[in-house]
Lab assay of single mutants.
Amino acid sequence: GATAVSEWTEYKTADGKTYYYNNRTLESTFEKPQELK
């Protein structure tokens, strides 16, 4: 079976905060997504 690849990509803001962006739902969040835990 195919492994589900996380759609979340980790980015940093200009002031160094980490956030996560989902390229399928176009959602962004500062909290670590469930799929990455």
Rank of each mutant, 00 (worst) to 15 (best):
T3Q: 13
T18V: 11
F30R: 04
L26W: 05
Y21E: 08
D15T: 06
T13A: 06
Y19T: 03
K37P: 11
T29E: 02
K12T: 13
V5W: 12
V5S: 13
Q34E: 15
W8L: 00
N22I: 00
S28H: 11
Y20D: 01
A2M: 13
A4P: 11
S6M: 10
R24E: 08
A2W: 04
Y11T: 06
K37Y: 11
E10L: 04
K12Q: 11
A2V: 14
E35L: 05
E27R: 04
W8T: 01
D15V: 02
T3Y: 05
V5T: 12
L36S: 05
T3W: 04
Y21A: 02
R24A: 10
N22S: 02
W8Q: 00
N22G: 00
L36A: 08
T18K: 08
G1Q: 13
K12Y: 09
D15I: 02
E7H: 08
K37E: 13
T29L: 04
N23W: 14
N22V: 00
A14T: 09
G1M: 13
Q34C: 15
E35P: 05
T25H: 01
G16T: 00
T9K: 09
L26S: 11
T3F: 09
N22L: 00
T13I: 03
Q34S: 14
V5H: 12
T18D: 05
T29K: 05
Y20K: 00
Y19E: 04
Q34L: 14
Y20N: 00
K32Q: 09
D15F: 04
Y19L: 09
E31K: 05
N23Y: 09
E10A: 05
S28R: 12
L26H: 15
E35M: 05
W8F: 01
T13E: 03
A2H: 13
T13R: 03
K17I: 14
W8H: 00
E7Q: 06
A4H: 14
T18N: 05
E7M: 04
P33R: 01
A14K: 10
D15Y: 04
N23I: 12
T3R: 12
Y20H: 00
Y19H: 05
E35Q: 08
N22R: 00
K12D: 03
D15H: 04
A4M: 12
L26M: 15
T29H: 05
E31M: 06
E10F: 03
R24Q: 12
L36D: 08
E7D: 10
E31L: 08
S28D: 02
T13P: 01
S6P: 11
